[in-house]
Structure formats: structure tokens, C-alpha cells
């Protein structure tokens, strides 16, 4: 059953990849990448609980962190046209 859920989540992630291709706006693509990242995180947690591999939970933590940073950085880039809020450029 845990295997079934993991496979279903992978299928859902690939289905959401269609939205990254179809758009129609840039924000849609960012949202779809975020959703795919969340589904991959949950798949990692399920795989960890299947095999009893605790280290996959650490990988899931890093995945969630990267997912958040990617969303924030890409959104800031398209909203303000730059990544840095400092004094240069």
C-alpha cells in the first residue's frame, strides 16, 4: 500500500510536469515546479518509511528547503528583475 501511494505520487508529479510545459504564464510554471517538488518530497518520505532508511528523511528536508528557495528566488527575479536587494545594480 505504501508502494502504491509512492507510485501514485510519482504519476501525479509527472502529470503536473504537463503544467510546467503548458503554462500559459511564467507564474504557472513556477507553481507547477513547486508542486512537483512537494510531490517528490513526499515520495522520498514514503520511500524512507518503506525501507526504514532514515537518511532519506534528511534528503527530504534538503529537498523542501531547495523547493522553497527556488520559488522565492524565481518569483523575486520575475517581480523585480533582479535577485539582489543590495546597493549594487
Amino acid at each position: 500500500m505504501v508502494w502504491g501511494a509512492a507510485v501514485a505520487l510519482v504519476v501525479m508529479a509527472f502529470a503536473c510536469l504537463w503544467r510546467t510545459n503548458a503554462g500559459p504564464t511564467l507564474e504557472d510554471r513556477i507553481l507547477a515546479v513547486n508542486v512537483v517538488g512537494t510531490k517528490a518530497l513526499i515520495t522520498l518520505v514514503l520511500l524512507a518509511s518503506i525501507g526504514g532508511h532514515g537518511f532519506l528523511i534528511d534528503a527530504a528536508i534538503v529537498y523542501g528547503l531547495l523547493n522553497f528557495i527556488i520559488t522565492i528566488a524565481a518569483t523575486r527575479l520575475i517581480e523585480t528583475g533582479r535577485l539582489r536587494g543590495g546597493t549594487t545594480s
Binding site: 528536508i61 523542501g64 528547503l65 522565492i72 517581480e79
Partner: peptide, 27 residues
């Protein structure tokens, strides 16, 4: 650690959604 992942997701998902929606509305 699994509960920590959940707390992290609970904190970051609304922030990311807010930032994305704001940028989309302005754009």
C-alpha cells in the same frame, strides 16, 4: 525529523504562495 519536515512545510508553503500570487497579480 518527519514532524520537522511537516513544520517546515507548514511555514514555507504559505510564504511561497503569497509571494507568487503577489508577483502574478502585479504582473
Amino acid at each position: 525529523k518527519a514532524v520537522a519536515v511537516f513544520l517546515f512545510l507548514l511555514l514555507t508553503a504559505p510564504v511561497a504562495a503569497h509571494v507568487l500570487g503577489r508577483a502574478a497579480y502585479y504582473a
